[in-house]
Nucleic acid binder design. Sequence first.
DNA 1: CCAATGACGCTAG
DNA 2: TCTAGCGCCATTG
Length: 110
Amino acid sequence: MPDYTFFDNVYDVVRQIPKGRVTSYGAIAAYLGSKQSSRIVGYAMMACGTANPPVPAHRVLNKQGLLTGKFHFGGDTMEQMLQSEGIEVIDNQVQNFKAIFWDPAIELAL
DNA sequence: CCAATGACGCTAG
DNA sequence: TCTAGCGCCATTG
């Protein structure tokens, strides 16, 4: 296992996402450094399977609240998990996304 | 060491 | 308003 730093940061933030809430790659990237690292967050999510313990990457969506990485979970696993937490997911799109949005830059800033 | 890739985001046309 | 292209940082081959 390589030197985790950025990844560990991302994982730590994602693991702190409360149940029934979601966040975006850009929000995490912005919280860690700048939105410019948005790709790195997505990359970290891809590698979340290698993380220990695995992170609830199903709560991490893009800026649009779209389940961009649902394919990586394998089918509809991602939306199934979200709906299991009370989150409405229609057509890979989280309903009321803005309301359940969990911004680390604000929540973790407390 | 260099080049390519990636679950995104923004700007320009 | 919608579509297309570029940039960004980190990891892997």
